[in-house]
Nucleic acid binder design. Structure first.
Lengths: 149, 149
DNA sequence: TTACAACAGTTGCATTGGCAAGTAAACTGA
DNA sequence: TCAGTTTACTTGCCAATGCAACTGTTGTAA
């Protein structure tokens, strides 16, 4: 068969990215999130809230790559579990602002060191320089995708 | 707040990886797969079959990061659509072997150039050398995760 | 051999997820 | 100023997913 009709997955970037993403999510879920009864999606939302402070749901959705409708329900669950607070924006009453509750903040702060640890495990044996190159490339790729979503 | 309790997402590798993976999947789905009525998961299975030939479902599941039960049903759908063939293994009758049908192969061969194209778009402006570094790192990360799943 | 464990796959069940349609608020411009 | 559009969010519906339980097969070791 001619070569351009074959795809070597081990050299195909989308495959490599997806595989690593899945492995990271699976590990973090099994080793850490499960015992707190959190899904990986919940963790992403909590981490985004922690990193960027209170946000509208639409911004959270963009940050976490979660669909807005899914996110709406997810926030409902987080609120029910008293990990997040949702309120109507003062300045624009069609918007909703989500923020961490004290309990949510405490939980995230306990999880962040564990998350860092997993990252360290994942990149064991990689030079600081190569790591920087890879991060730059991933940011670049994301930028390149931003054209028409 | 002390620094180790904060997480800068734009510098956190699992976040960068997940974000890029989602963007790639969303683009490929919207621009290409949708018109063939394929999900991203179906594409991954077809691509894995194309790259590695006929396989047991358990191997396919590992290749695609799809749960075995989900994969079982997914293959059923592919078979119904005459894109794949499933048969009991001769040598070991508890195993099942999945392979592309001629129609499935034809479809994959039409999609592969498009997939390559998307990869090229994603890595536009990246040097060959940096790309190689990033791919090595992603393979390494996956290896580092393989410890206890 | 034969009991027991490990393996491959499938299915039941409940949860989750995404799309499309709906609600309500805030712009827009003529 | 007010009809039409856009924006932010929610909800109904159904497909897809994941876990656990189950079936059947193969491997193991006494």
């Amino acid at each position: 068969m001619t070569d351009h009709l074959r795809l070597d997955l081990d050299d195909y970037l989308p495959y490599l990215v997806h595989r690593v993403g899945s492995a990271l999510a699976a590990r973090f879920t099994a080793e850490t999130l499960a015992r707190h009864d959190l899904s990986i999606a919940m963790w992403r939302v909590l981490a985004a809230l922690s990193a960027n402070g209170e946000q509208r749901q639409i911004d959270l959705a963009a940050m976490t790559s979660i669909d807005v409708s899914t996110l709406s329900r997810l926030v409902t669950r987080l609120v029910r579990r008293r990990l997040a607070i949702r309120r109507r924006s003062k300045s624009n009453s069609r918007e909703v602002v989500v923020q961490l509750s004290p309990a949510g903040r405490a939980l995230v702060e306990r999880l962040i060191p564990v998350a860092r640890n997993l990252e360290d495990t994942a990149i064991a044996g990689v030079s600081r320089k190569d790591l920087a190159v890879a991060k730059r490339l991933l940011r670049r790729m994301h930028g390149n995708m931003a054209g028409q979503p």
